[in-house]
């Protein structure tokens, strides 16, 4: 464990909690892409099946359980409890255009052609593009609630911190995982224009509104 990975995990946890609290407190999922949340639930489910087969640490297991629990709770709030506030018209990204190519790539490019490894690879690739429906929805509505931008900032920051973690592990533990690193770079790059807007607008107290 290193400081980048720990702060990365905490940033990820913060994002998940911020979103869950936003929906729960405001009793509304306006501006939130349910499709992205479903993709994240799939990402966690396919990546954390090893919860059943291997134990790494209390930290590892508890974080995985929290991530999976919150992901499904968020999907439940969006599609069941507060579905009246779900903005389906603007959440129109065709996720099959993500899941199918990612699934194919996971079968073709992986470290080991085994069931768990292919699922893990699928989850890594899927996570790198899972935020696209959410970013697409914001570009369609032209704006985002400030709390949603904080959620996105923490979510984008987590994988950027993981990139630093992988540099650290390469240097100190001569370890690197090309699949995770390439997917992590793609994932972080997708947030760049959002990061720019967040830093130039939200941090200056303005509302995040895209040029319509």
């Amino acid at each position: 464990m290193n400081v980048f990975r720990l702060t990365g995990d905490l940033s990820h946890l913060a994002a998940i909690i911020i979103l869950l609290l936003k929906i729960w407190k405001s009793r509304s999922c306006a501006g939130i892409s349910g499709k992205s949340q479903i993709l994240f639930a799939i990402v966690f489910t396919t990546r954390y099946l090893d919860l059943l087969t291997s134990f790494i640490s209390i930290y590892n297991t508890s974080m995985k359980v929290i991530y999976i629990g919150c992901a499904y709770a968020t999907v439940y709030l969006i599609y069941m409890k507060f579905r009246a506030t779900y903005d389906g018209n603007h959440d129109s990204f065709r996720v099959e255009f993500l899941v199918v190519p990612v699934g194919g790539l996971a079968v073709l490019v992986n470290h080991d052609f085994s069931f768990l490894e292919i699922l893990w690879t699928f989850s890594i690739y899927l996570e790198s593009v899972a935020i696209l429906p959410q970013l697409f929805m914001i570009s369609k509505t032209g704006e985002a609630e400030t709390i949603t931008t904080h959620y996105l900032f923490c979510l984008g920051l987590y994988r950027a911190l993981y990139l630093l973690n992988w540099i650290w592990r390469f240097y100190f533990e001569s370890f690197f995982d090309m699949i995770a690193i390439v997917a992590g770079v793609v994932q972080t790059v997708l947030y760049c224009d959002f990061f720019y807007l967040y830093i130039t607008k939200v941090l200056k107290g303005k509302k995040l509104s895209l040029p319509a």
């Binding site: 291997s54 640490s57 080991d112 995982d177 090309m178 995770a180």
Partner: peptide, 10 residues
């Protein structure tokens, strides 16, 4: 990176 080693991350 072989299976198992990398999987200590979330």
């Amino acid at each position: 990176a072989k299976l198992g080693y990398f999987k200590d991350e979330l």
